[in-house]
Write a protein that binds this DNA or RNA. Structure first.
Lengths: 134, 134
DNA sequence: TATTGTTATACTCTATAACTATA
DNA sequence: TATAGTTATAGAGTATAACAATA
């Protein structure tokens, strides 16, 4: 219930910025790097290359992502954030923070810290690493 | 990440029983009651009546849900679990328990209790009540 | 008119698998 | 052949809005 409520509300918030949650995840994954091959992104996000291809199409159409062709390998290319896309990431990140603050604000500081610690321990012990797309 | 991992794994598990997570939520919502009007179910599950209608169609086709027509109001009907559907709920519930045990089993008893307590407090303070469908 | 449900339409998310171009 | 991506197809999940039947 908690996770659903938090992410539904976040979805509503990012929509006002013209992107979906999956698109945000995609952009966030690109933010850490210069340019990334679709196949690498698929691995990083735990999605198929078909799904990445479709998401990339939409983000290219929105002008938030750009692509550069590989010169060594004519099949390959890399994806990167456009200037506009890169500028948008902190805005979306602050929506995420705001959303978290809003939801978890009803907890005491101790509760928040305990929750944070426990979830991080869980993720570490289970080796979770995929960026959630929804 | 945690929530995504848990629910993706659960989705995989229920699929082996021939239902989707949304269908499971629907069945779970019916389990507490005799027969429920689609409109009431929509309210309870936080979905539109159109979405309920579509889900109900699938569950009727699978024989897990049945409907009874209202005699007072010829527009209305109620939905209820079929015998097969009712028998399936505990099976699916045990998959959910198994899944939770599997995921949260890497936590100590203290960590699990703290997590449980905090999430329940959060849900209570935020007045969350919708059954998550995904 | 108002209400109960259904249906039409649309979009996102995602997978699988077939396909194209290149290596 | 093998690999990088794209595309075709499909189905789930869901919303909005138009609609039919009945109240």
């Amino acid at each position: 219930m908690v996770s659903n409520a938090v992410s539904q509300e976040f979805a509503r918030k990012v929509t006002t910025e013209g992107v979906t949650v999956a698109e945000w995840s995609f952009m966030r994954a690109l933010y850490d790097e210069e340019a990334v091959a679709p196949s690498v992104l698929a691995e990083k996000m735990g999605m198929t290359k078909g799904a990445i291809s479709k998401l990339a199409d939409r983000l290219l159409a929105k002008g938030l992502v750009a692509r550069i062709e590989s010169e060594q390998d004519k099949r390959a290319h890399s994806l990167l954030l456009s200037a506009e896309g890169r500028a948008k990431v902190p805005v979306l990140a602050s929506l995420a923070d705001e959303n978290d603050a809003e939801y978890f604000g009803v907890l005491t500081m101790d509760e928040r810290e305990a929750l944070d610690r426990t979830l991080k321990a869980l993720a570490a012990r289970r080796g979770l690493r995929n960026i959630p797309a929804d």
